[in-house]
Design a protein around this nucleic acid. Sequence first.
DNA 1: CGACAATGTGTAA
DNA 2: TACACCTTGTCGA
Length: 308
Amino acid sequence: MPEGHSIHRLARQFGDVFAGERLAVSSPQGRFAAGAALLDGHTMVHASAHGKHLFLHFEHALVLHVHLGLYGAWDFGGDSQFRGTSSIGAPRRVGERELPGGTGSSTDGPGNDAAPAEYAGPPAPVGAVRVRLVSDHGWADLRGATTCAAITDAEAAAVLDRLGPDPLHNTCGSRDDFIRRVLAKRTPLATLLMDQKVIAGVGNVYRAEVLFRGRIDPLLPGRALTADAAGLLWDDTAAVMADGVRDGRIITTTAGFWTRSGHLPPGEEAHFVYRRHGQPCRVCGTPVALAEHGARKLYWCPSCQQPV
DNA sequence: CGACAATGTGTAA
DNA sequence: TACACCTTGTCGA
C-alpha cells in the first residue's frame, strides 16, 4: 500500500482539483452504490489526511472516508488543471513514482495526434471502480480500497481518535506524544512503528528505512530507547516522509547518509535495506537480512543495526 | 494461464 | 496466527 506520504499527496490533489466543486458520485462496480447516493450532487469543500486515512469533506456534513489497504489506488483525469492523467496509490513496481507531472499523452482512441483534445468527460469505467467522482473539469476513480464509506463528521472524528500522531502533521505535542507511546512499551520498535496508534502513516518501507538510518536494532524494545533517541527517530521519520510527499516516491538514501559506493547508480538510489535482502549493505557491505515479523517482511542490516 | 506477492488492516480462532 | 479482502504486475509452466 501507499504509505502516509501518498495519502497526503491525495489530500492535496483532491483539494487542488475538487475543492468547491459539485460532484457526481457513482459506484460503477456497485459495491458502494448506497454510499455514493448519499454524496451524489453535493459539493466537496475540503480534503484531509491523517496517517493512511483520506477524508473528503462535503458541504452537508458527510465525509467520504477511504483507506487504500494493500492495493488500493486512485486514478485521475480531466482538463488542464488535472495536468493530464495520473495515479496515486499502491505502487505497481518497486520504487514507482507517482504522477501528476506526466505527459498525459494518450496513444489510444480514435482521432489523430494533432492538437491536445479537449476534456470530454470520463472514459468508460475500466475494471472494478468502487467509486467515481466527476466534476465539470475531471474525474477520479477508486479501485481496490479496503475502506470506502460515507460517514458523518462525528464518525470521522472517531476515526482520528483511534490514530496516533502523524509525522506529516508535526505540530503541537505530536512529537512528545510519540515519545510517550514508544517509551511506554517493551514491544519491539519494528512492531511499534507499524502500529498506527503509536505513529500514523508509517508502513513497511519507512519502518525498515528509518530504523536503518537511525542504526537501530529493529528488535530493540521501545522502552529501551532514551527520550532523546525516540525524538530523533520521530524527527527523521518526519523529514524523510516530507521528502516522500514532495517526490511522490520513497527515497531514503538522501544526501548526508554515506554509502559504501559513495555514488549510487541511477534508479538504485531509493532504499538502504527495503527489499535488498542478500545484497551488500550500502554502508558496511554486510548482506541485508530478511525475516518474517508479524505477517510482514522485515529488512535490516545485522551489522549496522546491532543490539546495544 | 494460474500462482503469488505487494508500501494493510480487521476479524476470527 | 491465519485468512479475508479482491487489484494488478510478475514469473513460471
